[in-house]
């Protein structure tokens, strides 16, 4: 049994919106999860179920309304003080955000995001080593450096940008990688290579990957463990076979029935 890397206790986030009449949205509702070292855990659930909100709290950029997040024995919202502690944390916990276009500041070349990653791990991006690593990272995700480095974000496709973000994660090599829909823009025929990379990070670097997706098929194929999120709560958790082929919760059952299958055809009646 490997050890727990990060856990959350009664984690809750309530958003307040509305101007005259306040509306409260419980985006994350009393969530207790534990992530172990070197596992790929899928967090699956439909749009608006609170997946990204949970990830942002774990990344320590969104303050929880209540509850705790413990990473290697440290309560991240209480015990981390100053930029030095935070940098340590972000070296260990990194993210790939959902929308590849939003990941890039349009005023800078895409290289910037990779240079930032090198700076974070203490390598000068202009040094020989830095440059080499950058090219290597881009090649690892199946892009050609001369076609992508030195370009502005609007000159690249969503799929290319998404892969550059994965290259960034590959440079940082965090202990915990929060991957929010990391392959949503990739073509079916190339997606497999990138997914393999996550598994490689797990096996070779002992990385824990929190793989966030609404694609149940993907979750089923890549993960060691599945968590199903519904209206801010984790309603089901366990082994992929168990969760998908013997679901306990009505909602999970219903969703699974709507996932299109390749080898089986649905039957409709008039």
């Amino acid at each position: 049994m490997s050890c727990v890397l990060l856990e959350t206790k009664n984690l809750t986030k309530i958003f307040e919106s509305g101007f005259l009449r306040k509306v409260y949205i419980k985006a994350v509702d009393n969530v207790d999860i534990a992530l172990k070292e070197a596992e790929v855990v899928s967090l699956a659930g439909q749009s608006g179920s609170g997946k990204t909100t949970l990830a942002k709290m774990i990344l320590r950029i969104l303050e929880p309304t209540s509850g705790e997040i413990i990473f290697q024995g440290k309560n991240i919202w209480r015990d981390l003080k100053g930029l030095k502690d935070l940098k340590w944390y972000w070296r260990n916990v990194h993210i790939i955000f959902q929308n590849p276009f939003a990941n890039f500041n349009p005023f800078y070349k895409v290289d910037r995001t990779l240079r930032q990653a090198l700076e974070l791990i203490g390598i000068d991006p202009d040094s020989g080593e830095g440059k080499k690593l950058m090219r290597e990272a881009v090649e690892v995700v199946g892009l050609r450096p001369d076609e992508t480095l030195g370009k502005y974000p609007h000159q690249l496709s969503g799929g290319q940008l998404q892969r550059i973000m994965i290259a960034r994660a590959w440079i940082v090599r965090p202990k915990l990688l929060l991957a929010d829909e990391p392959v949503s823009m990739l073509d079916v025929s190339t997606r497999g290579k990138i997914l393999e990379l996550f598994l490689k990070l797990r096996d070779e670097q002992k990385t824990t990957v929190l793989f966030i997706t609404h694609d149940f098929g993907l979750a089923y194929v890549v993960s060691d463990r599945i968590m199903i999120m519904y209206k801010g709560k984790i309603i089901e958790e366990g082994d992929p076979e168990e969760v998908f082929f013997n679901p306990k919760h009505e909602y999970t059952k219903e969703l699974i029935e709507s996932v299109p299958t390749l080898y089986r055809r649905w039957k409709f009646d008039l």
Partner: peptide, 26 residues
């Protein structure tokens, strides 16, 4: 609240650097 600003933050940039590099150009 934009993702690219978060990414600069988690790369360890301080507020001043973010203000000048990420916010001001916009």
């Amino acid at each position: 609240e934009r993702e690219f600003v978060y990414l600069s933050r988690i790369a360890g940039y301080n507020s001043l650097k973010i203000a000048f590099q990420d916010i001001l150009p916009h």
